[in-house]
Design a protein around this nucleic acid. Structure first.
Lengths: 197, 197
DNA sequence: CGCGACGTTGATTTGCCTCAACGATTGTGG
DNA sequence: CCACAATCGTTGAGGCAAATCAACGTCGCG
């Protein structure tokens, strides 16, 4: 459980990492973002619904995932403390979401409605820059994921994942790590066996 | 060959698709972007060099690609008329590029140096919004590529590629399409054979 | 003309999936 | 608080999609 007054600190810190905001800006930002608590397994966004909020994770763990026609699940993204998570295509185009977003642990988020964010962009123009930089980084990170998934073995992708995302690995079952890496749980299991000599 | 006075039209049109700019803004933009011509096979950016420009394609065709330790090539992105292309990570962090960018056809681009773009963001603040929206769309498109590469067969990815990118397919050799799709040229060849009954 | 770049074909190999079975752990209702 | 069920990870057998390797035909260009 996080005290309400503490909750906004990590959001403001996250913004201050990239842009400079005044005290006035901060209070406008705080007024725009609303907290939401989720229990483990709660679905934050259903496929088919429209995503109307940008979401910042205060505490807990979430996943976004895709289910294809055959019913197979593919994990698109994990999110933990201080990450942003969304079905961005749905949010931007106001179309039905392609992905589910689900809490994997008890989770607290701060979210802002699209209408309020549009207002905020006018009141605090530097937020436009903040999201541009966030988008740039997200794009670069994902492009890197694409290239690595083409050029590296599944074993080295797994090793890289546990090296750079130990905090996520500790919060999600192994079969979800496999899904994120694009392999089956059985295959990840044999990879791990081989690694332990 | 494109007349100098015509060259900027497509850039301005590209910007106007997303944001509103005044005549004054337009002339500031035009002053900031410099043309560059490339012959087929010219390398625009070498791995190891730092990317210092944002680049907009007027005419022609380019690819960015990655070479791993074993010497295998992986195509990260194609670019044709009216697309932006860059090694964004290198540009943003001023670090050595991970990718090559090469012309696959005689190509003309307009490019703006980082310093000039930073100035332009101050003179024409709406350009900040322009690039935020571009980044959002690039991120969404690439995330979609990631998910599709996990959840679809190589045949359906190929069919989708030729359906949505026929303009690219006509400008690049088949083995580069295979590389972009994450399969071998031989395998793409057998996919095509099977499709032709 | 001759060479290099490109696409195709087939034989063989391999990385990973599918399917099935089985412990170990966790969680839950009686 | 225990018993049973569900969840999760592991193991192994068998199969398939795609890679590797090698050879060959064709085309365009210097």
């Amino acid at each position: 459980m996080i005290a309400k007054e503490d909750m906004y600190i990590s959001l403001i810190e996250n913004i201050k990492e990239l842009v400079t905001v005044s005290e006035k800006d901060i209070s406008l930002i705080m007024d725009s973002f609303k907290p939401k608590a989720l229990a483990k397994k709660d679905i934050l966004l259903f496929k088919g619904d429209t995503s109307n909020h940008m979401r910042f994770i205060i505490e807990g763990c979430l996943r976004s995932y895709y289910i294809n026609e055959e019913g197979h699940e593919y994990i698109v993204q994990f999110g933990i403390r201080n990450w942003w998570i969304n079905d961005l295509f749905s949010y931007l185009t106001k179309t039905p979401a392609q992905y589910f977003i689900q809490a994997l642990q008890p989770t607290t988020i701060l979210q802002i409605h699209r209408d309020d964010l549009d207002k905020l962009f006018i009141q605090v123009p530097v937020m436009e820059r903040f999201f541009r930089i966030k988008m740039e980084r997200a794009y670069v990170a994902n492009l890197n994921r694409t290239v690595k998934s083409m050029s590296e073995t599944s074993e080295s992708r797994y090793l890289n994942f546990i090296k750079t995302h130990r905090d996520i690995e500790q919060n999600v079952p192994q079969y979800m790590v496999a899904s994120y890496l694009g392999i089956t749980p059985e295959h990840l299991s044999t990879i791990r066996k081989n690694l332990h000599q």
